[in-house]
């Protein structure tokens, strides 16, 4: 059985934010909630690198392990989803997540925590596929249609890859081989010397 994975190739990521707006577009994620973000290291300096980060759909998901109401489940192909009707918005999963993926949309003007929201790998949630309920609570369900997450499908440079982990790894490995097995950005030699 396939296991769905994301992989972001930092050599190709140009921090263009297509993944972010593709996600907004596909699921109509409201202003202030970011299921996906681009993170930059060494901004404006040699060695500048960026990667696109969202829920990584962990095999042994810490969010699920700590959830007091057990609202998380994993699909047979490895996508971590949750039931928003059960979620109490406690934020415990946010403590546990190494990537800061869970988001808590504000519900009122006074900042009471809402139910948790996160990347669904474009696989909707525990509602009838393509129903109004699924669309409004979780967004679209591309996976059920045989399509992959739109963020990766629209990535400007094909830096962000999504799909069966084996296929993703295969595509990435070929690319690394083609590059001669090492990063290719300016600053590498400066940092580690010509022979690095």
């Amino acid at each position: 059985m396939a296991r769905m994975k994301f992989l972001c190739d930092a050599e190709r990521c140009i921090e263009c934010q297509a993944c972010v707006t593709a996600c907004k577009n596909e699921h109509e994620v409201p202003w202030g909630v970011n299921r996906r973000r681009v993170i930059v290291m060494n901004d404006g300096r040699p060695g500048e690198k960026s990667v696109s980060v969202a829920c990584m759909h962990c095999t042994d998901a810490p969010c699920a392990a700590v959830c007091p109401v057990d609202c998380f489940y994993t699909t047979a192909d490895g996508i971590v989803l949750h039931d928003k009707d059960l979620c109490i918005g406690c934020g415990y999963c946010f403590y546990a997540c190494p990537f800061g993926a869970p988001q808590y949309p504000r519900q009122t003007a006074f900042g009471v925590r809402g139910k948790m929201d996160k990347c669904t790998f474009c696989a909707g949630g525990p509602e009838v596929a393509h129903s109004e309920a699924e669309l409004t609570k979780y967004g679209t369900n591309r996976i059920a249609e045989g399509k992959l997450p739109l963020c990766a499908e629209m990535c400007a440079t094909k830096a962000l890859l999504a799909g069966d982990g084996d296929i993703v790894a295969d595509i990435y490995r070929k690319r690394v081989m083609r590059r001669g097995g090492r990063p290719q950005t300016w600053g590498w030699q400066a940092a580690y010397g010509q022979d690095a």
């Binding site: 921090e15 699921h27 109509e28 994620v29 409201p30 202003w31 202030g32 909630v33 970011n34 996906r36 973000r37 993170i39 930059v40 290291m41 901004d43 960026s50 980060v53 969202a54 928003k84 946010f94 997540c97 190494p98 990537f99 800061g100 993926a101 988001q103 808590y104 949309p105 504000r106 519900q107 009122t108 003007a109 006074f110 900042g111 809402g114 139910k115 929201d117 409004t136 609570k137 967004g139």
Partner: peptide, 24 residues
């Protein structure tokens, strides 16, 4: 739910953590 939450309260600071942390 999701849509409503974009309500009048969006003048909030972003959620902390990697996805919301100030880098770059």
């Amino acid at each position: 739910k999701l849509m409503k939450k974009s309500g009048a309260s969006t003048a909030s600071s972003p959620v902390p953590g990697l996805l919301g942390k100030a880098i770059g």
